[in-house]
């Protein structure tokens, strides 16, 4: 049981988190545009999250909080 939360308005949509995710559940949410004008990162299926914090480790803008 793990959960990641994105501070969406700070996300620059660089996609580094999606490459670091071992279970490939992070995608840029094409249905949303944040205050900066980017498609922010979002998790499709939170039940698959391992809570490894790789995404948070590589995020250059410290957008992500991880709970486990």
């Amino acid at each position: 049981m793990a959960k990641v939360t994105f501070n969406e308005d700070l996300c620059k949509g660089c996609e580094l988190c999606s490459t670091a995710c071992p279970v490939s559940i992070i995608k840029m949410d094409k249905t949303k545009i944040n205050a900066k004008g980017y498609h922010p990162a979002a998790v499709e299926d939170m039940a698959k999250c391992l809570g490894c914090a790789n995404c948070a480790m590589i995020c250059p803008d410290v957008v992500i909080t991880v709970e486990r």
């Binding site: 049981m1 793990a2 959960k3 700070l10 620059k12 949509g13 660089c14 996609e15 580094l16 980017y38 809570g51 914090a53 948070a56 480790m57 250059p60 803008d61 410290v62 992500i64 909080t65 991880v66 709970e67 486990r68």
Partner: peptide, 21 residues
């Protein structure tokens, strides 16, 4: 659930001007 990763107190809340990525 416990928080395993959150923003460090060593960083301010100012958004960086760096390019994406």
């Amino acid at each position: 659930m416990a928080i395993v990763f959150e923003k460090t107190k060593g960083l301010s809340n100012v958004e960086t001007h760096y390019c994406p990525g």
